[in-house]
Design a protein around this nucleic acid. Structure first.
Lengths: 155, 155
DNA sequence: TCGCAATAGATGATGTGTCAATAATCGAGT
DNA sequence: ACTCGATTATTGACACATCATCTATTGCGA
């Protein structure tokens, strides 16, 4: 192994591993609470929130995909499953014969309205209660910084 | 909706959403680079690293599961797939008739030794280059704090 | 208006994660 | 020595993600 590799320093490694581990545990935990309390996956939740955020309660596939950062195909499968469960519906698009809207159903609305408070409570209990507001701000700043960098180093 | 819910303040929401989004994007990106450069999933990588970390290159399922924070069943499926690809092997355990070891194969070793430098480079390029060392430390501290809280609030 | 690249979305194959149920073995207490 | 609960790992079913491929439509330029 032609070793000009810049391995992580112990300090770097320590922080990086903590970060990785946090992500695995935290999102596993949040996902599992969502699942047992509200029968929703994280993806379900994100989609229902995005649809609720829009005044008309409906979005084109592309818009929705962009809003929650899903790939086209992932979204297509996801929506197919959600239609089967009655959470959303497909609606043909008049102006563009190829396109379609995704709309939230009444059942979808009820579901998200019941789920959201529980989810917020979980976030508060698991994360916000663990760190003071300044640190949350710091976390947000760092996240935003890395995100920006990621977008600049676009694939 | 009986609303005594403590919704997130705009400030909280801002930080929290950035954090979520970071996780989705960053790990998707790292995973996809790992996949295309080294034909490994994040799980494959974690397992090979854990096995390499151990001097004997072999671990009991339980130890391995604990080391990388996998559930039993997930690990079992994962190892089954990796055996099929020749990256690891199963070895019966003499002292405990129930148990088994997972050992890294030569091919597994070659694979991880080729993959690791590329992965480290990706972490450096995508993350460490985006933030100064103090912020990485801060990130590590916050992550550790939340992790500790998560373990205390055990499920 | 014809031709064709680009766009919108669907689909099937495959790999991955989770849950519930199962089977084998261990070990502590009787 | 026996029994029974705990531990160790596997399995099958299903939800989810990704990739490559496919179809239909649009819209642009010759």
């Amino acid at each position: 192994m032609n070793d000009d590799t810049q391995w992580l320093s112990p300090r770097e490694q320590h922080s990086w591993r903590a970060f990785i581990r946090l992500n695995q545990k935290l999102f596993a935990r949040l996902g599992s609470e969502l699942q047992t309390q509200s029968k929703l996956s994280g993806a379900d939740f994100a989609i229902l929130v995005a649809l609720t955020d829009d005044p008309s309660g409906r979005l084109r596939f592309q818009e929705l995909a962009k809003a929650i950062d899903f790939e086209q195909s992932r979204l297509s499968h996801q929506i197919a499953r959600m239609i089967k469960r009655g959470l959303v519906a497909r609606e043909e698009c008049a102006e563009d014969g190829r396109g379609a809207f995704v709309t939230i159903t009444d059942q979808g609305r009820e579901t998200i309205e019941a789920a959201a408070p529980k989810h917020v409570a979980a976030v508060r209990r698991l994360v916000l209660d663990a760190i003071p507001p300044e640190e949350l701000d710091a976390l947000g700043d760092i996240a935003a910084r890395i995100l920006k960098h990621l977008d600049e180093t676009a694939p």
